[in-house]
Design a protein around this nucleic acid. Structure first.
Lengths: 269, 269
DNA sequence: ACTTGACTCTTCCCTTGGGGTAGTGCTTAT
DNA sequence: ATAAGCACTACCCCAAGGGAAGAGTCAAGT
C-alpha cells in the first residue's frame, strides 16, 4: 500500500496541511519520500499511527504531548498515566468554564434587572414592604465606600443573591466621615460567616421616593421625603433604607444621570 | 491623576505588555502620550475602561470582541445580548470538554482492564458463567470484520459498557466468507435500537481455554478445546463464545503476541 | 509525444494574547 | 559622571494549522 498525501488525507480525514505539519514535527513520518520530487507516500503502519494521533487530538492532547507518547517505545506502560493526567486537566478546564458560566449568568441577571424599571413614577408614595432574608455587611466610614461592602458580600454569596443591592443607614442625620451603614443584598438562602450577617430584615410601612440621577444629588430627594413625612403624624424609624434600582453595572458604569435609587423611610403610625 | 504605565499596571494588575497591546489594538488608549518620549500616561477614565476589560477577559471575551463592545456608544444596549451569546459559547465549551472527559474516562477504564489479567493459566478448564445483559450487533461476513461491530455498539452504548468485548459464533464450523456472528458488550442498562439487540445472554457450564497470541493463531487453541470436549460425553452448544480479554487498545494496537482471548464452548451434560 | 488538469512541493504570511529580549532614551539619585 | 530604574520601539517566539503564491509532477486523453 502506497498512498499519496491526498489519498491518505481522504482515508484518515486529516487535512493535507496537518499531515505535512505532523511530518515536520516528526510525529507521523511517511513511509517513503520520493528522492527527487519530495512526494510523501504513506503505508498501513502510518495509518495506524494516524488513527492514534486522531484519537489523542480528540482527547485534547497537544502535538508535543502526542510526540512524547508516540516516541516512548514503552508507550503502553505510561499511556494510562498520561490519560489520567489529561483527564485531570480536562476536569480543570470544565471547572474553569463552569465558573465563568456562573459569573456570566450572574452578571446577565443583574444587567437584566438593571434594564427593567424604565418608566417609574417619581412621586412620593406610601407602600408596604415585605420581610426578606438579607446578607449584610456593616461598615463605618464614608457613604461612597459602600461599594466595597457589596464586593465583599458578592464574593461570598454570589450564587444566592436574589434581589437588588440595598443600603441601610443607621444615623439619623447626614455624616461626612464616620457614618454607620450596612451594605446588603436580598438572598435566597445562606448562613452568616465572618463579618457578614445573614438575617431577616423586617418589612413594614414606609414613605418612598425614587430618585433619578447621580448619587451626589440624593440629598435633594431626601429633603423632599423628609418634608413630606414631617407634614404628617408619622414617626420616622431607623435605619433609613436605599434600594439601588439601577446603578453602575458590573461592567460599565453607565450614565449616572440614569441611575435610579429608591429612598425608603420606614414609619410608625 | 496621571499614572505612568508601570504605576497603572500595578493599579490594574494588567501587565505592561498587555497595556501596550491594548493600546496598539485601540482598546485602551492612554489619556496622554508624551510627544517626545512617547511615554504613556493613564487617567481615571482609563481605569474604568481597564476594569471593564479585565472583567470581560475573565468572561472569556476575545480582544476584538471587547473592542466591539467598547466601541459601541450604545454599549449598554447590546451588552446583554453579547453576554448571552458568550454564555452560550461557554456552555458549548463546557459540553465539549464534558464529552472529552467522558470519552477519556471510558478509554481509561478499558486500558485499566487491559492491564490486568497478566498472569493467567493457559489450561483447559470447566467453569460456570453467569447470565449477563448484553448489547449485540449480528453480522455476516469475515471474522475480522467484527471490529466494525464493536465500533457501532461503542458509539451507541459507550456510556453503558460494563465489561469486555465478546464474540458469539453461530456456525458450527470455520467459515471463510459468510460467517454468522455477533459482536457484543456486556452493558449495565439500555434498550435495543435499530440493528442493535439488547437482551440477556444465558450463562451455564462451559469448557474454557485462554489463548495467548494473535487472532490468526486462534485455530490452534480451538483444536485443543474441541479435542478435549470430544473426549467427554458433553454435547457442544452454539453459539461458541470468544471473550477478548486483552486485545488491541483504543489508541495503540499493542503487540499481538500478548493478546489474550478466552474461548468458551458451552456444554449440555 | 504533447497537452491538460489535478496533485504536490516549498516558502511565506496570518491568526490569539501576550512573553522575552535587545538596543536605546529619559530622569533622578548618588 | 555614572549607574539604577523606568520607558520606548522592534524583533522573534509559542500552537495548530489556514491560505495563497509560484513552481514542479503525475496520469490520462489525444
Amino acid at each position: 500500500m502506497k498512498l499519496s498525501i491526498g489519498e491518505f488525507s481522504a482515508v484518515t480525514s486529516l487535512t493535507i496541511k496537518s499531515l505535512r505539519l505532523y511530518h515536520e514535527k516528526g510525529i507521523l513520518i511517511p513511509s517513503q519520500i520520493d528522492e527527487f520530487t519530495q512526494y510523501r507516500y504513506y503505508d498501513e503502519a502510518n495509518l495506524e499511527t494516524a488513527k492514534s494521533i486522531k484519537i489523542l487530538r480528540e482527547y485534547d492532547f497537544s502535538l508535543s504531548e502526542i510526540k512524547e507518547i508516540l516516541d516512548e517505545c514503552d508507550s503502553e506502560e505510561n499511556l494510562l498515566e498520561q490519560l489520567q493526567e489529561k483527564f485531570k486537566q480536562v476536569q480543570e478546564k470544565i471547572q474553569k468554564y463552569q465558573n465563568i458560566s456562573n459569573s456570566l449568568a450572574n452578571t446577565i441577571n443583574l444587567e437584566k434587572e438593571n434594564k427593567m424599571h424604565v418608566n417609574e413614577n417619581f412621586e412620593i408614595e406610601e407602600k408596604e414592604v415585605e420581610t426578606i432574608l438579607i446578607a449584610g455587611y456593616r461598615m463605618k466610614g464614608q457613604y461612597h465606600e459602600i461599594g466595597k461592602g457589596f464586593g465583599i458580600i458578592g464574593k461570598k454569596f454570589g450564587r444566592h443573591i436574589n434581589g437588588k443591592a440595598m443600603g441601610l443607614y443607621f444615623d439619623g442625620e447626614y455624616k461626612e466621615n464616620d457614618a454607620d451603614f450596612e451594605a446588603c443584598f436580598s438572598i435566597r438562602k445562606g448562613t452568616g460567616e465572618g463579618d457578614i450577617s445573614v438575617r431577616e430584615l423586617k418589612g413594614g410601612k414606609c414613605v418612598s421616593l425614587i430618585h433619578k440621577g447621580p448619587y451626589n444629588t440624593l440629598s435633594e430627594s431626601y429633603k423632599k421625603v423628609f418634608t413630606a413625612v414631617n407634614e404628617t403624624d408619622y414617626k420616622k424609624l431607623l435605619p433609613t433604607r436605599e434600594v439601588y434600582i439601577k446603578g453602575p453595572g458590573m461592567i460599565f458604569k453607565g450614565n449616572p444621570k440614569n441611575y435610579l435609587t429608591e429612598i425608603q423611610i420606614f414609619i410608625e403610625e
